[in-house]
Design a binder for these strands. Structure first.
Lengths: 230, 230
DNA sequence: GTAATAAGTTAGTGAACGCTAACTGAGGGG
DNA sequence: CCCCTCAGTTAGCGTTCACTAACTTATTAC
């Protein structure tokens, strides 16, 4: 198999294995067994284990960028508050669909073992914060938010809420459908929190109905994938 | 040394070691070295490693119960919204003061390795949710909150926000002072979110000024403990 | 005074970890 | 036809893990 395809296969396999066994239980041997390879075969494509995790972060970064650009949609200047809400739901959808992502992000062990990884996560976090802050400031400029809004706190609350939902989904292992329900209702409260006038936000959800197919996607529609509990 | 004292010493030492090295790096050998004991000496007081983690959860449970009872204060029927805010800040203070706690709670590896631990965490979470829900419902009864408040979502947002702050403090390793500042400002937004009238909440903070001494406590007043960064 | 108990020791178990060394077989170009 | 590169193998390195067996020492009870 060509090296590029193997690399992709390894990253995707790692994400699945993390979702199933936890980030710290994913050894080179486990990866090798999952894709039908010998253990040193894995190290032919990645020099160290750290490099594998780096590739996984890269994947996360790409998906997050997808969510953001998708949240902006096709319009030239979409209402910033509308974009913010779509970013929120898009991020939650990503987290629910790939439980391995949150497990890697939450793994203190990995961060501690590979400082470069921690640095990468930190950069991603700053990027995220800047993105949200910009949208909030734009909202103030367009008078969707009062000028008294505490923007840094609002950005923090945005991120904290998503982190909390990610925790419930990945680590506390709550049902995906429950987490999604929580997310949509909590988003309403968040909009309250930052002082947005309620009427302005109706209709913004039109392009993202909480379709079960979209959230619990792929093969699992309704009957399948009942192994996630609580 | 008597067994009871040793047990306490081991639990406290584990929390410190977790804060420093991460939950998954705390081996029996590391504990033994830290308290000046041989490695099998640790297993004389706890039959398995799982038992050690169980004891740590017990410690967390006790501290959380302290925070709650302290939040209620001395009054017979304190205003529920006032209690809620003190619970929030008390919990954040606990998390900031003992970074090891959050690392244990966030460790997917430990939860995966010891299902009984996961069960215990789950019970604690339910307990927490019930506590917050009760306070929110009481607030509606006392007309501090509108009857239209989405109580389950408000309880989830409460917990998610704290989890998010815990993540930033323990895993993302933000400065304690920064996290505390975020917490106080985010709390204002939370109060907005659940629709409470602003005037009613002034004065509720009087008993908990954001005193640096209380939060960053013990030996580290201002100059010390600068090792936490970012 | 002696026997029992509690606390801790040294030595060692098998398993798993990340990673390396050295070799093998297939495909393609000069 | 030969040789080289690429993808993969087997075997093994040293280390750490949780945990056990068997022995020692100090305190306490009778």
């Amino acid at each position: 198999m060509p090296a590029a395809a193997r690399k992709r296969q390894i990253v995707e396999t790692v994400l699945e294995l993390v979702a199933e066994h936890g980030a710290d239980a994913v050894s080179a041997q486990l990866i090798a067994d999952a894709i039908g390879l010998s253990q040193p075969g894995v190290f032919r494509h990645f020099p160290t284990k750290e490099a594998i995790w780096m590739a996984v972060i890269g994947w996360l970064q790409d998906r997050l960028a997808d969510v953001w650009s998708e949240a902006r949609g096709d319009q030239e200047h979409p209402p910033p508050i509308w974009v913010l809400k779509r970013m929120f739901l898009g991020h939650v959808e990503l987290i629910i669909r790939y439980p391995g992502l949150a497990k890697v992000v939450f793994s203190d062990h990995i961060r501690h073992q590979y400082p470069a990884l921690h640095e990468q996560f930190h950069a991603l976090h700053r990027w995220y914060d800047r993105e949200v802050t910009t949208l909030l400031e734009e909202s103030i400029r367009t008078s969707d938010l009062p000028s008294t809004t505490d923007v840094p706190a609002a950005a923090t609350l945005f991120f904290c809420t998503i982190q909390g939902l990610a925790f419930q989904s990945a680590i506390a292992r709550y049902r995906r459908s429950r987490v999604w329900d929580c997310a949509t209702r909590v988003l309403v409260l968040y909009v309250n929190a930052i002082g947005m006038r309620q009427p302005a936000l109706e209709g913004s959800m039109d392009r993202r109905p909480p379709s079960a197919r979209a959230v619990f996607g792929t093969s699992a529609t309704h009957r399948g994938n009942r192994r996630d509990q609580r």
